[in-house]
């Protein structure tokens, strides 16, 4: 009798010891920002929270949204950090994410706005303005005067030199479409887009591809997010960046906690961490030049200065909704991009 007790006590102690050893929290993070930034965030978070083991994997926003949808009901991801805001808003709209309950007091207006329209399900962490980039070597060689405004892109001097993504596949290009609509009104916007379209050599699938092509001289001019262009220019390519004179739209990168997350406390701690001024100030260390959402965070000198760029009052609630999106894209297919373009 006694012996069984001893044995069972020993087993009990062994199991409880094992259980406590394994108690270190696991936090599953999907990161949709640049790999280096993801690595930096994980290292910094683990340094502050030694009990948490952050398991991070990098996937693009589209891939993450597809995975979150497919896993709905039994998610394997706790928190989704980084990447353009639209897919985060769609996830919020579909109830795939949950309110984080983290304070947004220190954040700038556009970041709080994300939280307001998604019922606190997603919060803005950085912003990036839309712009035009051109390869100065190519334009010099061909004797083409650089563009300064959206209107310039319709000029015949850019025939076959402009590259931009297809809004059906790329969020970047959809932001451009929505920006045109908000700047010029819907009908005027499509006329202008069609005029620019006459100069476009191809509508790429990926939103960041045009600027990469411009950096390597495969195309003369590209439309995309300025922080991507800054990064390419900083790594040595002859890329010049233009903030269009009519004004421009922007994207807001976001962070969301997945509905049904297994480690909600950890996810919450992550969101709090990601919104802190000192954490956001570290992004330029890894060549990420987006504008941070915390009003106390330092802005890198290389970052596009949002104050000097004419930013439109981008209406995320309207243009992020699935309904508007479907309508605008259908019209884009009809009037601008031929889904079966001529070879």
């Amino acid at each position: 009798m006694k012996r069984t007790n001893v044995i069972s006590a020993a087993i009990l102690m062994a199991t409880s010891a094992m259980a406590s050893a394994a108690l270190a929290d696991e936090l599953n993070v999907v990161c949709s920002a640049e790999q280096d930034w993801c690595d930096l965030m994980v290292a910094a978070f683990e340094a502050e929270n030694p009990d948490t083991d952050v398991l991070m994997v990098r996937k693009s926003t589209g891939e993450t949204l597809a995975q979150v949808r497919a896993e709905a009901g039994n998610p394997k991801i706790d928190v989704w950090w980084g990447g353009t805001g639209d897919p985060h808003l769609i996830a919020a709209e579909e109830g795939l994410t949950q309110p984080s309950g983290v304070s947004t007091d220190e954040l700038l207006g556009w970041a709080r706005n994300m939280s307001d329209i998604s019922e606190a399900r997603t919060v803005g962490i950085y912003a990036g303005a839309l712009g035009i980039a051109y390869n100065s070597e190519i334009l010099d060689e061909k004797g083409i005067a650089p563009p300064a405004c959206w209107a310039d892109l319709a000029d015949p001097r850019f025939a076959g030199e402009i590259q931009v993504a297809n809004p059906n596949s790329s969020g970047t290009a959809y932001t451009e479409l929505a920006t045109f609509v908000q700047l010029f009104g819907e009908d005027e916007a499509f006329t202008r887009l069609a005029a620019v379209g006459a100069n476009v050599n191809s509508y790429t699938k990926s939103g960041s591809a045009p600027s990469k092509a411009a950096a390597r001289g495969e195309t003369g001019v590209s439309i995309g997010f300025m922080h991507d262009m800054v990064k390419l220019a900083a790594s040595g390519f002859p890329l010049e960046i233009v903030a269009p004179c009519e004004g421009t739209g922007y994207e807001v990168g976001a962070v969301s906690i997945i509905e049904g997350a297994r480690n909600f406390e950890g996810a919450q701690a992550w969101v709090e961490f990601a919104l802190r001024a000192d954490v956001q100030s570290r992004a330029p260390e890894v060549q990420s030049f987006q504008v941070p959402s915390n009003s106390n965070a330092e802005v890198a000198p290389e970052s596009p200065d949002l104050a000097s760029i004419k930013l439109i009052d981008y209406d995320f609630a309207t243009y992020g909704s699935s309904e508007t999106r479907a309508r605008l894209l259908a019209r884009w297919d009809e009037e601008v991009g031929d889904p079966n373009p001529q070879e």
Partner: peptide, 24 residues
């Protein structure tokens, strides 16, 4: 096709973007 396709659309890339594109 993704890297070199340009405007030449094929099924495999269309399928990919039908799943992960801006309109899934």
């Amino acid at each position: 096709p993704l890297v070199l396709g340009g405007n030449f659309g094929v099924l495999s890339t269309e399928i990919y973007f039908a799943i992960v594109g801006s309109v899934a």
